[in-house]
């Protein structure tokens, strides 16, 4: 096992962070505005959010670089800003963490579907390598490939990130099918665990797409399918639009109440995705302390 990962999980479940996107929205990020761009334009606010997670008890924090791959950036006319966004993203997170938490570089999907031929495997691989490499050079402790709905793309991203030599966490969204236990492209947790491990992931997991209760059985299945540590970051329920405002109905106490079951189900890393905030991390920390 990778030594950093081993060191992190040695003393029990590791608390990761909560959402960045919805927290930046709460600080004025506009609809459609690229959150990653705030690494350049509002670095103090990005740092504030990450710092709040460290204060709340996060042992791993992620960078605000979810969309900073060349393919997604080019849609915003920012393809050439990739290296700078990823570098600044890591620098800001390291600055916020001050050595109290490790910094993992976030890599989200390209937004294009390999299967439809609108983007090639080579383009996807090179975009992800470019991103991972910029974050490795800036001093990231690891890379998290997250919110992936297409296993093929997730594998390419994982392989590309692993080439930097950093430990790679690879997570898929399971939100499809009658039992919400498949990816959009129809893959099961077992398939994802096996293939992501083969692609070089040292931690596999699931994030986004549904609330915490739905991820408990998925966590168990990932656990049974692999010897690798498991990473889980559910949403605070599904977003609803009420009077023009986005709300997530799960509160921190409700969320944290399911954390022991998730740990029993085999989760080694636990945090939250969309709609979660530092209060969720504090609640998780409090529950884990009492175990």
């Amino acid at each position: 096992m990778n030594s950093l990962i081993q060191q992190l999980i040695a003393t029990g479940p590791v608390i990761t962070d909560g959402a960045l996107g919805t927290e930046l929205q709460a600080r004025g990020l506009k609809p459609g505005e690229l959150p990653d761009l705030w690494n350049l334009t509002r670095p103090e606010l990005v740092k504030q959010v990450i710092h709040a997670y460290v204060e709340a008890g996060s042992q791993v924090v992620l960078t605000a670089t979810f969309r900073s791959n060349r393919i997604t950036l080019s849609q915003h006319g920012l393809a050439e800003k990739g290296a700078e966004l990823n570098r600044r993203g890591v620098e800001i997170a390291r600055c916020a963490a001050k050595g109290r938490a490790v910094v993992f570089g976030s890599m989200g999907p390209s937004g294009k579907l390999l299967f439809s031929g609108e983007v090639s495997s080579e383009e996807v691989s090179s975009a992800f390598f470019e991103q991972a490499n910029a974050m490795a050079e800036a001093g990231a402790d690891g890379i998290v490939v997250e919110t992936m709905s297409d296993l093929e793309e997730a594998k390419l991203a994982t392989e590309a990130a692993a080439r930097t030599g950093l430990p790679v966490v690879a997570c898929m969204v399971f939100d499809s099918g009658r039992n919400k236990d498949r990816t959009m492209m129809g893959n099961t947790p077992e398939e994802a665990a096996r293939e992501l491990a083969a692609a070089g992931a040292v931690v596999v997991g699931a994030n986004c797409g549904q609330g915490i209760t739905g991820y408990i059985p998925i966590c168990r299945r990932l656990r049974a399918a692999t010897d690798l540590p498991v990473w889980i970051k559910p949403n605070a329920g599904l977003p609803e639009l009420v009077d023009g405002r986005t709300i997530y109905r799960t509160n921190p106490v409700e969320f944290a109440a399911h954390v022991p079951a998730m740990v029993e189900g085999g989760a080694n890393f636990i945090g939250g995705c969309c709609g979660t905030n530092p209060d969720f991390i504090r609640a998780i920390a409090a529950i884990l302390r009492t175990r």
Partner: peptide, 10 residues
């Protein structure tokens, strides 16, 4: 019926 997923649709 979940016999087909997105790839089969496409």
């Amino acid at each position: 019926c979940e016999e087909y997923f997105v790839p089969e649709l496409l």
